[in-house]
Amino acid sequence: MLKRWIEIFSIIDFIAVGMLLSVIAMNSLKRIESCLKAYIINSSLLALLMVATAIYLSIPHLYLAAFFTIAGKCILIPYFLRKVIRQLKVTHDVEPYISSSLSLAASFAIVTIVYSVLSEGIFVAGLTRTVLKISVSIILISLFVMMTRKKAVTQVMGLLFMENGLFLAGFSLTFGMPTIIELGVLFDMLMGVLILGVFLSQIKKAFVSVDLDKLTSLKG
């Protein structure tokens, strides 16, 4: 019953597009807290996509992976990041190098390039015809975000989004990796964010701000 619905309404594609939209939204949001919310939405959609796949392909262990995704990416990581942001007293502005409308235009350009270039070969294989293209777009847009933001916190956010994109890419090609690997990736992510948090506070201590511009002075 559910399986047929998923197929008829292309539920999986819809969820994936939702993830893409949340990344594009993040690219133009101006407040760090909103970015964090976008990340929670993105991660929840990822978990939802896993559940849909689990039903569609009858792979029960994906439920477990979805559960851990929600626990890690929707609760633990955002909680920790928010704590770091409060502790470091980072101002609320994202402070991009370029205006948000230009960022939107760049996202549009990236999606266009990816869709026009990746229209054949292995890129239409995978879960559905669109999921892999969407995941590549997510990765590139997140990279763009990392490139154009001044603050270290936003770099971390970009990295997190990129990881979701990578996860989606791997997921769409393998129809769910073994649970142990998915758990491992999640755990890595958690540790990564913890370490980055520590790094942020160290950068703050050494340079008084978390603006990455100041890192230029490290060059010999």
Binding site: Y97, L140, L143, F144, M146, M147, T148, Q155, L212, D213, L215, T216, S217, L218, K219
Partner: peptide, 12 residues
């Protein structure tokens, strides 16, 4: 250049 953003730009 020492700028992280420029390095990310190279990757991009």
């Amino acid at each position: 250049s020492g700028s992280l953003h420029l390095y990310l730009g190279y990757i991009m």
